[in-house]
Design a protein around this nucleic acid. Structure first.
Lengths: 163, 163
DNA sequence: AGGAAATAGTAACATCTGATACCAATTTCG
DNA sequence: CGAAATTGGTATCAGATGTTACTATTTCCT
C-alpha cells in the first residue's frame, strides 16, 4: 500500500489551498462516489422490504439466506451476509419475534442454534423476492449488457483486491 | 452480474423453497454486492483519516470540502457531502472542537454560519490528502484504463437513474 | 408596518449500533 | 479424567445516529 511519498506529483495550478500533489475533489473521489451510489441503491431496495414489510436491512439479509435453504446454523449466517455475530443474533431474534423464523438447538452441540423459516416466513419470502429481483432488474436496465459484464468483473476485482 | 446469464439461472431442482420466478442468491444480488464493496472500500479509506487522524467519516467529508475552498456556508455543505443538516452540524462542531475549523456568522444573515479551516486544519488537510489520493490510486490500479472508464460511466448512469 | 411563514442551526430525546464482558456447552490435552 | 481453552450466542453499557421540536433570524405578504 502506498506510503505517502509516491502519491502523484503535483500540477502547476495551485488553487489557493493544496500545494502539493493533486487536488482532492470529493465529487470525483471514487470512494465517496461509490459510498454515495451504494447508499442510493440501498435506499431504493429498502423500499421493498422496509416500507412494505417492515424489515431491517439485517433482517432482510438473513431472510434472503434463509429463504434459499431449509435451515441453517446461526454461525453460518454471518459469513454469508457480512454481518457480525451480534447483528445476526439480533436479526434472527427480530425475525423470530415476528413469527418469521424459528430456532432450535443443534442436537449434537447445544451451543449452536439452527434457524429456519416458519410457514409464514416462507410465504413472506416468496412475496418479497419478486419485488427485490424486479428492483435489481430495473436498476441494471439502464446499463448495456456490455456495461453489466464489465461492472460485474470490476466489482469482483475490487472486492478481491480488498480482502 | 445481476441480470446476466450467470445469476438468472433458476435451477430445475427446486431447493424446497422458491417456486416462482428466479431464485434470489444474495451473493450474486447486485445491491448486496454493491453495499458490500462500498463498505470494504469505505473501510480501506477510513484507515487513512480515522486511525491516523481520528476523524469520523462525516468530519472527513466536511474537511475534504473545506480544504478545497477558503470558506463555505454551513448550509452548502450538506448537498456537497450527502450529509443531512444535523450531521453537518455535528461534524463541524467536532472539527471546531479540535481546532480544525472555525465558524463565524454571516454578516448579512445572522442565522447562517460560515465555516473555514484554521491554519492547523489546513495543515491537516494537506497532510491527509496525499494518503487519500494514494488510496484511491491504489484501489483503481487493479483495473484497466478501459474498466475505469466504464466504471465511471456506469456509476453516473446508475446514480442518475436513482435521483 | 407587522404578523405569518420560511430558513439555519441546534437541543433533546429515542433508537440503533458497536464493543466488551459474560455464560453455557464443548473440546483439548497434560 | 478434569482443568484450561475454545466456541456459540447474548446481556449490557457507551457512543453514534436519526427524529422531532424549538430558538433565532429573516422573508413574505397584504
Amino acid at each position: 500500500m502506498g506510503r505517502a511519498g509516491e502519491v502523484r506529483r503535483r500540477d502547476a495550478t495551485e488553487r489557493g489551498t493544496g500545494q502539493d500533489g493533486r487536488e482532492l475533489d470529493l465529487q470525483q473521489y471514487f470512494p465517496y462516489r461509490l459510498a454515495r451510489l451504494a447508499e442510493q441503491v440501498s435506499l431504493a431496495v429498502a423500499e421493498v422490504y422496509s416500507e412494505r414489510f417492515t424489515l431491517t436491512r439485517q433482517e432482510w439479509r438473513v431472510l434472503a439466506i434463509l429463504g434459499a435453504r431449509a435451515e441453517i446454523a446461526t454461525k453460518e449466517i454471518g459469513p454469508l451476509t457480512t454481518l457480525d455475530k451480534m447483528q445476526v443474533s439480533r436479526a434472527v431474534q427480530g425475525l423470530q419475534a415476528r413469527g418469521i423464523a424459528s430456532r432450535k438447538h443443534h442436537p449434537d452441540d447445544r451451543r449452536e442454534l439452527i434457524v429456519s423459516l416458519t410457514p409464514a416466513g416462507r410465504a413472506l419470502y416468496r412475496k418479497i423476492v419478486p419485488y427485490a429481483l424486479a428492483r435489481e432488474t430495473e436498476l441494471l436496465s439502464v446499463l448495456t449488457a456490455e456495461e453489466v459484464k464489465v461492472l460485474d468483473r470490476v466489482m469482483h476485482k475490487l472486492s478481491a483486491a480488498l480482502s
